[in-house]
C-alpha cells in the first residue's frame, strides 16, 4: 500500500458527530490541520478532547462525519499517523523494558507474525536517544518516573516514522526536564515538516508551545493560529463563565486571566 502526502491538509475532519447513548460528546466538529504545524486541542473537562483524538484514530466510530489524512481516508493512510496515548491508559507493571515498548512502534511496518530484528531494535534505540532516554533502555517500565514513561511513549511514536503525531495530554504530570524535552521534540518535528495535534490542558503554555489551537467544548468554538484565536472572548465561550470570573481586568490576555 502506498501512502501519499501531497498538498492536502494533513488532517481534515468534517462534521464529526459522536454520542454516547444519545448524549452528544462531539457535535458537528470540523478540524483542519495544515501540514507542519503544532496544534493544541484545548477545552474544559468533558469537552470531548480525548474523544476527538480517538475518533481521528478510528478507535471510536462517529455517528457522522469523516476523517481525511492528506486527502484520503484514515484507514488507507493509517501508516502516516502515530499515536501517543495518555500515560495512565496502560499497566506500567507489565513485564517489559523501555526499549521493548519503543520497539512496539515498529510492529505496524513489520506486519503479522514477523519478529522485530536488529534493524528494528537499532531504530528503537535511536528513538530513545532522541528523547534522552538511551540510558534507560533496559529498565523495566515501572521503574521509570512519570516523565520518563511519557518520553518512552513519545519514542514509540517517533519510531513509527509517521507524518502526523496525535498526542493525548503529553505534558500531563511530567517533570520539568521532560517538559523541556517534549517541547524540543515538538519543534524538531515541526522543523522536519511533521504535523502534531496534541490534547493540552495547560492554558498558560498554549501560546508558547503551539502554533495553532482548536478550542473545543462539544462543538468547535474556534480554531486557527494561536495569536488570532486564543482570545479572552473565545476562552469564555469555551469554558463558559468560569474563566472570566478569575481575572477580570479590562484588557487582560488569556494568560493573565488564568494566573
Amino acid at each position: 500500500m502506498r501512502l501519499r502526502t501531497g498538498n492536502a491538509l494533513a488532517v481534515q475532519a468534517t462534521d464529526l458527530t459522536l454520542a454516547y447513548q444519545q448524549r452528544p460528546v462531539l457535535w458537528d466538529v470540523d478540524l483542519e490541520v495544515p501540514r507542519g504545524v503544532l496544534m493544541a486541542i484545548v477545552g474544559p473537562n468533558g469537552a470531548g478532547k480525548t474523544t476527538l483524538l480517538r475518533t481521528l484514530l478510528g478507535l471510536l466510530r462517529p455517528a457522522a462525519g469523516e476523517v481525511l489524512v492528506f486527502g484520503r481516508s484514515y484507514l488507507e493512510q493509517r501508516g502516516l499517523v502515530a499515536y501517543v496515548p495518555q500515560r495512565g491508559s496502560v499497566d506500567w507493571d507489565f513485564p517489559t523494558t523501555a526499549l521493548d515498548v519503543v520497539t512496539m512502534g515498529t510492529y505496524g511496518s513489520l506486519g503479522w507474525v514477523k519478529r522485530p530484528g536488529a534493524s528494528e531494535r537499532s531504530r528503537a534505540t535511536a528513538a530513545l536517544e532522541q528523547v534522552g532516554m538511551q540510558d534507560y533502555a533496559d529498565r523495566q517500565i515501572s521503574q521509570l518516573s512519570g516523565g520518563q514513561q511519557q518520553r518512552v511513549f513519545l519514542a514509540r511514536a517517533l519510531v513509527q516514522d509517521a507524518e502526523i503525531y496525535l498526542m493525548d495530554e503529553p505534558f500531563q504530570g511530567v517533570d520539568a526536564t521532560t517538559e523541556r524535552a517534549i517541547v524540543d521534540l515538538l519543534r524538531a518535528l515541526r522543523t522536519a515538516g511533521k504535523t502534531v495535534v496534541a490534547v493540552h490542558h495547560d492554558l498558560q503554555t498554549v501560546a508558547e508551545y503551539f502554533d495553532q489551537v482548536t478550542l473545543l467544548n462539544v462543538r468547535r468554538i474556534a480554531a486557527g493560529p494561536v495569536d488570532e484565536v486564543f482570545t479572552e472572548e473565545n476562552l469564555r465561550l469555551t469554558y463558559g463563565g468560569r474563566v472570566a470570573g478569575i481575572g477580570g481586568r479590562a484588557n487582560a490576555t488569556p494568560l493573565d486571566m488564568l494566573a
Binding site: T17, Q22, D28, A63
Partner: peptide, 20 residues
C-alpha cells in the same frame, strides 16, 4: 428507543450542522 431517537438525533445533527 435507539431507533426512535435516531430520527430525533439525525434532525438535531442536521440543525446543528446548518447552524455551525
Amino acid at each position: 428507543r435507539r431507533r426512535r431517537q435516531r430520527w430525533t438525533f439525525a434532525r438535531q445533527m442536521l440543525l446543528i450542522h446548518l447552524a455551525t
